[in-house]
Structure formats: structure tokens, C-alpha cells
Design a protein around this nucleic acid. Structure first.
Lengths: 341, 341
DNA sequence: TAGGGCCGTGAGAGCGCTATCTCGGTGGTG
DNA sequence: CACCACCGAGATAGCGCTCTCACGGCCCTA
């Protein structure tokens, strides 16, 4: 009797059984499950009761197959290293995305992809396994957004993508953030205001730098004290050293990120500068690092969780067929005053 | 002409087309795609060529439906707040999980669940939408691991689950870590060694505390200087204050996490204690916070990425039907000496 | 030379849903 | 009173794949 094969059946009831218990057809159950109209209150209640009683949970695979939609979106992190994941920025976005998704029966697939894996990624996404994609941490030359657009997958980027301006994105208002930081420094009477900028191949680096420039030009101060760092304390320290070597009498620094500011802070203290008396320091992000630094860091707050929520809202809107959605959105930033400036 | 409905067809070729191009049947293409035996080298090559040429990517939904397996695992974060996501611990685990999964055609579903959402979660998972689950950040009384076990879903926990000892888990050797921290403090000649312990309803809190106790008992020192905190600098600061109020002449503190140590450090400095001269401080985790603290923190390093990898390895092993897998695994920790002790 | 494995392959039956078509009943309109 | 729009419901055809089964050819053994 080879009928006795171990049938490894998936557990749980089928839609069929729910229909039988509720005394209606599969179609009606499907309508109820999908919240469609044209179902009598009576049927609706009967189905709901049956679902609860049987603990029915519709099979996503079957649903996707029949319905030509995946009920899932991908959060794609495109980065050479996987450093990003430790970044509070990423954590915040993730939290926001999840918050916005929760209760909507849309699954979140997390995909990291290094540039050399992009082909696989594209193939997978082109297969219709997700309905849309959220993109974060884009370096400027990353061809990924463009390629996603090519295969017709709805995409929203977190942070302005340098390479593909046509893609919808949500970003913090980094320019105004940088501008506000400098205005604050100017209001403190500082005149030799340097910056440790972020990577120039990322919009976030460019925009905060532009804000700094604008602030200095407003105050008719020279904008020549620039060093570049990536988002590590080490590179922040290195950049600060350069700046100090070049111009020892700097009296303020705008760091493009708290984590950069931290490295700068260490160098400043090691070189005998008092913060904020000799050199005022402003960071960016208002991460945990800012409040626990010594001295606590004045910084520009960005609400990354809100950024995640907004990206998701935008994507789901597009998937629902809303038009009139803004192509892109800028989220406000705010200066948080602490001891360092 | 309502035939003109927007047919929203999924893009890409079907298995059928690959078969036609390769001159074989669907069955053979399926065999090649799934790496089965009993396919001639010739057919295999023809199919591979066709796949490449057509950029074929099999439809996961159809695969899951026909094959009764989801080709996906869930990473479940069970927590009241969504604070966890910002935790470097979580980020590290995530990175490890992803690394171990990559190239295996297994998708990662990220699911956060507050206790009040557990019913939904269970229903979803019972539906066979994932093949297994990875669990992190469990408070002791969390019924989730038990319930997952009930529905027969293969599960591996990250961190020892207090409530369900029978569940396979992977954890850092927190006990030995705590022990090593104290031994180091003792070797420095400290005798009034306090601890700011982690939450007592989490294994990680209990185990590090036990290690501290053992260390003191080895050195025949009293183990009565205990305060408890959760994983925030604020609670660390509060706990440190209590400790100092109770016993002003403390000369060393073992904090159950770097983030707790940070709060302790601030209180210590505010109260005029020099670190490490008056009070030596040891943290746990070796997070970024440890190296950027003032002074840089001596701490116990745990390799959370490795933890994520190991959890995943264990789960995939179980899914592949390996037996002889160790039920649980402990990963080594290591003391990292810096300035604070 | 006949029999039995084993390899390589194809045909075809579902997997559990959703989408579409169909149809009877109801109530408002000319 | 006939007509028709519309609501509520059921029947059924796939969605794209995997899995089981069947079958022919080959090699090895008796």
C-alpha cells in the first residue's frame, strides 16, 4: 500500500472547510476574507464565526498564485558591506516600515544586496515575488534603482537617489538641517566654522554640505574648511585632525553625523581643545550616541522612523492605485541643543 | 469592450517556455532547477542555457503551493516596544542570519510581534507560510516559543528562553563572560565589586549575574552589591546611584551591558569618582558605545553576528532533516581590555 | 536469451486560492 | 404589469509549479 506515503500535509483548514461550516460557497468565504462588498451581513457573520472557530488562515502562496500579487514588499539594502544594519538609521527606518505595514497583511522581506549580487536580485524581483520595493542606503552610482524601475516594480527610495532622479523618494531635509546647524553656530558668535562632511557620493553627504555652505554664505563667512569622512568615528577623527593641522584656530565644527562628531570630539579633546569653549561641535541625527557623548552633543534631529513610515505609506499608496501621490517628500529636521554648542 | 481590463500579468517566462526552448519537458526543467539527480548532462546543459537566455526565475508562490514548503524562514522579534530594532545586538544577529541564508534561495521574513498580537502571528505561521522560525529577544515569561512548538514549526531561539527550556537555542556564554569580568576586576585588586545586572526576567540578565556571583565566590568576596537595570543608559544611571547611596566606597562595577555601563559612567563622573582610579568599570557586548565612551570601556565581547549565523545553521540543518544536531549551543565570549578597568 | 534493476524522461494530477461568469431574487421605473 | 438594474450567491477555470506515476532503453546477471 504505497498510499501510506508520508503525506507531509500542511496543517490547518482549507477555505473549503470554512465554507462548509458557514454554509456558504468558497466564493463567499473568499469575498469575506478579502473584505469585498456584495455579501449579506448574515453570510459575513457566519463566515467570520467559522474562521475564528477553525482558526483559518488563508494560504498566501495560493493567494499569490491565483491573484497575481504577492502581498509582500521588499526592503532592499544595497551596500557593499553589511555595515548598514548596525546603523541606527537603518533600525529606525525598519521600525517605521514595520509600524506602517502592521495590520495590513503585507509581509516584509528583507533583502541585502551587494552590487555583484544585483543580477540575482533583479531576477528574483522580476519574478513577481513582491509587489513593491523600499530601497535604502544608496550610494550615488548605484544602478539598482534604475534597474528596478526598468522591470516595472514600484519603488520608493529612502534618501534621495543620486543616480536616478526620477525615482520617488522620501528624505530628511538635510539641506535645511545643515543650514540650521550653521545658523546656530553663527548665533553663538563663531566665525571659523568647519565641517566634516559625509561621503560626497551620497545625497545625504552632499545636501548637508550644501546647507553648511548656504549658512556660511548667509553670514558672509568663508566656506573653505571642509574635510570628508564616511560614517565611522575613525574617519571622523582623521578628518578632524586634518582640519586642525590646516587651520588650528577653528572655533566650530559641523559634523555630518553624530558618529562622525564622536571621532572629532576625541581628537579635539586629545589636542587640548575644550568643547564647547574653544570649539563648538554640532552633529546630525540625534542618535543615542549624541546624548551619551561627553559632552552631550548638540545635533540636528531627523526622525528616521517617520521616514520609514512615510516611504511605506507612499509605496502602499502606489500599489493601491492612488494617483495624486507626491513624487517625493522631504521630512523636517530640528536642532537639538545640548552642551557641545 | 470590458475585455480591455488591465490584465496586470506578471512578467517573465514560465517553466513551459524554458522547456520548449531546451527541447525537454517541464518535469526535466523542474529537476534541473531543483538540482535533482537523474538528468543527463546534455539536458542539464540545455536547460541551464535556456534559463539564462530567458532570464527565467521560478515563481515562488507556485513552488510553495505545489511543493508544500515555503522556502522562507521568519525572524521573529517578540518585544513589547520596538526598541529592540535599534539594538546593536539585533543588528548583529540580523547580519549573521542574512549571511548564512544568502545564496540558499531562502527568503527572510521579518516579523515583530507584541504579546497582544501573538494570536495573529501564530495563525499566520500555522498556515505554513514559512518553514521555520528564528526567535530573538525573549522575556522569560513569553509564551511564544511554546506556542510555536505546539504548532510543530521548527524553531531556534537566540538567547536561552527562560519559559521553554526544551526549545533549541544558541546563546553567548554569558555566565563565563560575567565570571571573566569579575576575575579581571579581582586581578586588579578590587574588593568591593558591584554589579548593575540586566532584567531578571531574561536569561541574559540571570546568566551574567550568575557569572558575577561565581567570580566573587571564587575570590571569597561578598556578593551583595546588586542593582538591576534594563538596557538603557537611564536605568543604568539610576541603578548606579542607588548602589553609590548604599555603599559609597564601591571600587568596581560590572555592568551587564555597555549601554548600562554608559549610564553608570555618567553618574560616577557626576559624583566625582574617577574611572578607573576610584572605580573600575566593565561592560558587556563590546558595542560601538564601548570604544567611543569616555574613558573607553573594558568590556566582554560577544560575537552576535556569529550567533545569528549559528542559529540559522541550526535551523536549516533541522529543515534539511539532519539529525544529530546539538540541541543547543553556547558561543564563547572574550574580555576586551580598554581604559575603564 | 530472458529477467530484473536502474536511469532518464514525459504526462498529468493537483496544491488552495481568486477571478470571472452565471443566475435567481428583489425592488424600482415607465 | 412587464422590464431592467442590481444585489447576493454559486460554479468553475485556471495561476505556475512539483510530484507521482508510467514507460522505454540500457546494462548486468543467471
Amino acid at each position: 500500500m504505497e498510499l501510506m506515503t508520508e503525506t507531509h500535509r500542511r496543517p490547518g483548514p482549507r477555505i473549503e472547510e470554512v465554507a462548509r461550516l458557514a454554509g456558504v460557497s468558497k466564493s463567499t468565504v473568499s469575498r469575506v476574507v478579502n473584505g469585498e462588498q456584495y455579501v449579506s451581513a448574515k453570510s459575513r457573520a457566519a463566515v467570520a464565526a467559522a474562521i475564528t472557530h477553525l482558526r483559518y488562515s488563508p494560504n498566501q502562496a495560493a493567494r499569490s498564485l491565483a491573484g497575481s500579487k504577492a502581498n509582500a514588499v521588499a526592503l532592499i539594502v544595497s551596500e557593499q558591506g553589511s555595515r548598514v544594519l548596525s546603523d541606527p538609521f537603518f533600525a529606525g527606518v525598519l521600525r517605521g516600515v514595520h509600524a506602517e505595514l502592521s495590520g495590513r497583511h503585507v509581509q516584509l522581506l528583507l533583502m541585502l544586496s551587494r552590487p555583484e549580487d544585483h543580477d540575482d536580485l533583479i531576477a528574483y524581483l522580476a519574478g513577481g515575488h513582491v509587489d513593491g520595493a523600499l530601497l535604502v542606503s544608496l550610494h550615488g552610482d548605484d544602478p539598482l534603482p534604475h534597474r528596478l524601475q526598468e522591470i516595472g516594480l514600484p519603488v520608493v527610495a529612502g534618501g534621495r537617489p543620486l543616480s536616478t532622479p526620477s525615482i520617488p523618494y522620501v528624505d530628511s531635509d538635510n539641506f535645511t538641517g545643515g543650514l540650521d546647524a550653521v545658523r546656530h553656530l553663527v548665533s553663538l558668535g563663531r566665525t571659523k566654522i568647519a565641517t566634516v562632511a559625509g561621503p560626497r557620493d551620497m545625497a545625504v553627504g552632499q545636501d548637508r554640505l550644501s546647507g553648511w555652505r548656504r549658512g556660511l554664505s548667509e553670514a558672509r563667512l568663508p566656506a573653505d574648511l571642509v574635510a570628508e569622512a564616511d560614517f565611522t568615528p575613525e574617519s571622523g577623527a582623521r578628518a578632524m585632525s586634518e582640519l586642525l593641522d590646516r587651520t588650528p584656530d577653528i572655533d566650530a565644527v559641523f559634523a555630518a553625523a553624530d558618529i562622525i562628531a564622536l571621532g572629532a570630539l576625541q581628537v579635539l579633546q586629545a589636542r587640548g581643545r575644550r568643547v564647547p569653549e574653544d570649539v563648538a561641535v554640532v552633529g546630525f541625527d540625534d542618535s543615542l550616541l549624541a546624548s551619551t557623548a561627553t559632552p552631550p552633543l548638540t545635533t540636528v534631529r531627523q526622525d528616521v522612523e517617520q521616514l520609514g513610515r512615510t516611504m511605506t505609506w507612499r509605496l502602499l499608496g502606489e500599489l493601491a492605485g492612488d494617483d495624486g501621490l507626491p513624487p517625493s517628500l522631504l521630512l523636517p529636521t530640528a536642532l537639538v541643543r545640548r552642551a557641545s554648542a
